[in-house]
């Protein structure tokens, strides 16, 4: 669910910023360079909810709720990323660091329990003036 709004050779004095969309509209999270490929960070949204924001291997960004529904702890941002086998659509997921259930990063659906899902937020990388 990523839209990259810039190209590699952007003019100087701009920076790449990660944004996610909530009911209130697009919301800036942090500079792209604070994210590591294959890992996540936690972000605090204006209404106090927590989002987990991830950077995939190919540079796509994703955002889902940070709360692990199986334990109640706000830790999904600290899980490991992976991708499901091609047969299952190569979809990227995060595995909870507590009890290892996997969540689809694009939809928030739990891959190990079809009854369970976490919120998924659209995410993008925006080019903004420095």
């Amino acid at each position: 669910m990523t839209t990259t709004m810039t190209t590699a050779d952007s003019p100087a004095r701009t920076l790449l910023r990660v944004e996610i969309r909530t009911a209130a509209g697009w919301h800036p999270v942090c500079d792209l360079n604070l994210l590591t490929h294959g890992r996540g960070v936690a972000a605090l949204l204006p209404d106090g909810t927590q989002a987990a924001v991830f950077l995939g291997r190919t540079g796509d960004v994703y955002a889902i709720g940070n709360r692990d529904p199986f334990t109640g702890a706000y830790v999904l941002s600290r899980g490991l990323l992976g991708s499901a086998p091609a047969a299952q659509g190569s979809r990227p997921f995060v595995a909870s660091p507590l009890l290892k259930q996997r969540f689809d990063l694009a939809t928030g659906r739990c891959l190990d329990d079809e009854e369970v899902a976490v919120p998924a937020y659209p995410a993008r990388i925006a080019e903004v003036a420095a």
């Binding site: 294959g38 291997r57 490991l80 990323l81 992976g82 991708s83 086998p85 091609a86 047969a87 190569s90």
Partner: peptide, 9 residues
């Protein structure tokens, strides 16, 4: 099928 993917946990 896993090459160039994200790997897994």
């Amino acid at each position: 099928e896993a090459r160039s993917g994200d790997g897994c946990e």
